[in-house]
């Protein structure tokens, strides 16, 4: 009975792992590696790669510049409605991508909420590269924000207080203590957001379209190519698998000082006598 139970557990685990790995392996096994690398030279792939790299780089910079201070505020300040705000910023995580796309159109589209104001300024967002950046930002931000809030929350309050007693004002304390101590967590959040961003498909195709060389990112190129040149689609797929795997590895290798979260002689044991 016990043996049968354990055999059952192993069988389920093996099935789950096999199911998750098979599609990934299939990408690499269907054609030879030389074909995969060769297909990456296709103009379509290179155009999509440039669009993806550019839009995601802009998105991640915007995310770090605005998201990091926002996360610090959410982590270090208690205010009414804080829990609600923390829940709301996670909404895009559970939102269907198609809803994100239609929402972005409704907000920033020609006929959208801000569309006419943007029109006056001579800005037309939909189906532009800026639209790709917005779509990526919208779906990827929650990954960074929630991780960054958690990273700042886990910074020992005494470190912040110590910096203050050492003549550092709030801004210096943020830059010299909170930011570097939370950097491992912030990096993890940025990697997660980047991974989500380069894979973004649904919101982008609705809000930005799939124009080669302008808004066609790698995932959109896979979709555009799979009934024209399946090998090209496979090659892009292989490239994205490699990038994702590298990001995953980076997440598993934390920065040196992040290994021991607390530097008290008792490790993680902390008194709460305050």
């Amino acid at each position: 009975m016990r043996r049968a139970f354990h055999a059952g557990l192993w069988a389920c685990a093996a099935l789950a792992v096999a199911f998750l790995l098979l599609p990934v392996l299939a990408i690499f096994l269907r054609v030879t590696p030389t074909t995969l690398v060769g297909e990456l030279n296709d103009r379509v792939v290179l155009d999509a790669l440039v669009v993806t790299a550019k839009t995601n780089a802009i998105a991640i910079v915007l995310l770090l510049v605005v998201g990091t201070p926002a996360a610090y505020l959410l982590a270090s300040t208690r205010f009414r409605g804080r829990a609600l705000v923390l829940t709301l910023i996670e909404l895009p995580l559970v939102l269907p991508p198609a809803v994100a796309g239609i929402g972005l159109l409704a907000a920033f589209g020609r006929a959208g909420l801000l569309g006419s104001s943007l029109d006056v300024l001579g800005v037309a967002l939909p189906f532009s590269q800026a639209a790709v950046v917005l779509a990526v930002l919208f779906v990827a931000s929650p990954f960074y924000l929630r991780t960054a809030v958690a990273a700042f929350e886990s910074v020992d309050r005494d470190l912040i207080d110590a910096a203050r007693t050492l003549r550092a004002g709030p801004a210096r304390t943020f830059a010299l203590v909170a930011l570097p101590v939370a950097s491992a967590g912030l990096g993890a959040g940025a990697a997660l957001a980047f991974a989500r961003g380069i894979g973004e498909f649904g919101a982008t195709i609705m809000f930005a379209g799939s124009v080669r060389g302008a808004t066609q990112t790698l995932p959109l190129a896979i979709y555009a190519q799979f009934d024209q040149n399946f090998d090209v689609a496979l090659a892009i797929g292989a490239l994205l698998v490699v990038v994702s795997a590298v990001l995953l590895l980076l997440l598993k290798l934390p920065l040196p000082w992040a290994r021991s979260a607390s530097i008290s002689p008792f490790g993680a044991v902390r008194s709460t006598s305050r």
């Binding site: 005494d158 470190l159 110590a162 101590v181 607390s262 530097i263 008792f266």
Partner: peptide, 11 residues
């Protein structure tokens, strides 16, 4: 101020 668990900057 010397904190109970010293609060040295780990980085």
């Amino acid at each position: 101020m010397v904190f109970q668990e010293y609060a040295l900057f780990p980085h």
